[in-house]
Write a protein that binds this DNA or RNA. Structure first.
Lengths: 191, 191
DNA sequence: CGGGTTTTGTTGTATATGAAACAATTGCGT
DNA sequence: ACGCAATTGTTTCATATACAACAAAACCCG
């Protein structure tokens, strides 16, 4: 029995407004040029309210990134399959659907200099997942799994970045198929 | 010197949310089927808050209509021209631009049974404006101006309704030209 | 360098909104 | 007709947010 304390509607609304406003600005101009004034004004929120939820714009950026990373994680782990983290490798379509659904965010992340934070976290997340996947005993350890995981994770991020920056010309299904083939061919998981 | 008391940001935000939510629902289903619950839920606002601003959904509808009528009025009267109300007749493009800008609202109004309220108010507004225009002494009173105004106002509304219901196939400029010719040919104002 | 402007955090107080509970009413299916 | 469920207004209390003012820092610009 979990006592799920649902947060106040106003908080959710305000945070939504602020992050939306911030991400818009983030895709429009350089991060350093963005002021709290602008963010609050566009979000139609008092300036003080921004400080109520975020210590500064760096914290705001970190939070945005963290939330999406967490979403991706839960997306990959909430399968009925008892072996966690199989989702992204064996069925990547929901992941790509998520990318498409939150296009404004990922687009901003990939088109901005300050995206390295996001990139690192995402890459680390995927790398760890691939590691877990490859540590299954029936996989021949020809190459160091850690290196392999990094390699494959980078490849994955690269594909996603390209897809986002070109405004998602292919369907999520197509992308999912490509990625699945990629992982199969590199024996990330056994046939 | 006017002491302009600017309203609280929360009020503006909330009202915006509620009317937006309501108009969406209004274009989706019959007015009688819409509940306050739905409106509040979609607006992401507490149900009690709706009652804080509107007595019921009828009041909400009336308010929406009134606001847009007032917008149209100010659009037609804020010209530098000392003779008020010339705007709509001699330069109808801004009016059509307004229609296009607020397409969701007008579309809902013209596609719903309960639109008669709106239709009446709009028709009355235009009719009065035309009356003022025609009362200028250099207009020959062959036909009773009141009747003529009603006639022309109905014609105008009819054109707008058709345009909206067909998803605005023509440009606002084109529509404006058409209306101007219409009024010219019927001597609403002298050449 | 100097000085005006903008931005930043922070504070105190007023108020709008959220959440929950309630009785009264309406609606709907059987 | 009955009863169950949903909707409606209304209330009370808690709290998130608005607003205004402030000093300090950062930023321009001549």
């Amino acid at each position: 029995m979990e006592s799920v304390v649902k947060t106040d509607r106003r908080i959710l609304r305000t945070k939504q407004s602020i992050t939306k406003s911030f991400l818009e600005l983030f895709s429009e101009k350089d991060f350093e040029q963005i002021t709290i004034n602008e963010i609050a004004e566009r979000a139609n929120v008092n300036r003080g309210t921004v400080y109520l939820h975020y210590s500064d714009k760096y914290d705001l950026l970190d939070t945005c990134i963290e939330e999406h990373i967490n979403e991706l994680i839960s997306l990959c782990t909430k399968r009925e399959d008892d072996t966690v983290n199989q989702a992204m490798v064996q069925e990547p379509k929901p992941v790509f659907d998520y990318f498409r659904e939150h296009f404004p965010f990922f687009s901003a992340m990939f088109s901005n200099q300050r995206a390295f934070l996001f990139r690192d976290q995402l890459l680390n997340f995927i790398s760890v997942n691939l590691m877990i996947k490859m540590e299954r005993p029936d996989n021949l350890p020809i190459i160091d799994n850690k290196i392999k995981a990094q390699f494959m994770a980078s490849a994955f991020i690269g594909i996603v970045e390209w897809w986002i920056r070109h405004h998602m010309p292919q369907s999520t299904q197509f992308m999912a198929d490509q990625v699945r083939n990629l992982f199969e061919n590199n024996q990330v998981y056994p046939k």
